[in-house]
Amino acid sequence: MARTSNPVKEPPAGMVEKRGRGLWFTHVLMILGVLVIFFPIWLAFVASTVPQAAITHPPMPLLPGDQFLTNYKRALFSGVNVPVATMLLNSLVMAMGIAVGKIAISILSAFAIVYFRFPGRNFFFWLIFITLMLPVEVRIVPTYQVIAGFGMLNSYSGLILPLIASATATFLFRQFFLTVPDELAEAARVDGARPMRFFVDILLPMSRTNIAALFVILFIYGWNQYLWPLLITTDPSMNTVVMGIKQMFPSGDDIADWPVIMATSILAMIPPVIVVISMQKLFIRGLVDSEK
Rank of each mutant, 00 (worst) to 15 (best):
A193E: 11
V141Y: 07
L35P: 04
A212Y: 03
R3H: 10
P119R: 08
P250I: 04
N154W: 03
L88T: 10
R117V: 12
M243I: 12
R117S: 15
S251A: 14
M15D: 13
L204P: 04
V93W: 02
P135V: 08
F77W: 05
L287W: 06
K281R: 15
M30D: 09
F25D: 12
G222R: 01
G14K: 12
I31F: 11
W228T: 09
L88Y: 04
A47P: 07
I130L: 12
I140F: 02
L159P: 02
F123V: 11
L35C: 13
T168N: 11
L29M: 12
M243N: 05
S155D: 01
N224P: 04
A213W: 05
T170Y: 04
R117E: 15
V28H: 06
A188W: 00
V50L: 00
L29V: 15
P236L: 05
T240E: 06
A187W: 08
I284T: 11
A2N: 12
M30R: 12
T86V: 11
G65I: 08
D182C: 05
I107T: 08
I140H: 05
W42N: 04
L184F: 09
I55G: 00
A44C: 11
N81G: 13
P205S: 10
E17C: 13
P64W: 06
A85D: 04
T179V: 10
I211V: 14
A104C: 09
T86D: 10
M87S: 11
S278I: 06
L163N: 03
E183R: 14
G192E: 07
A47T: 13
I255T: 14
P236M: 03
W24I: 15
D235M: 05
I164V: 10
L159S: 01
L163Y: 02
P142S: 07
W24R: 13
L230V: 07
V36R: 00
H57I: 13
T233H: 00
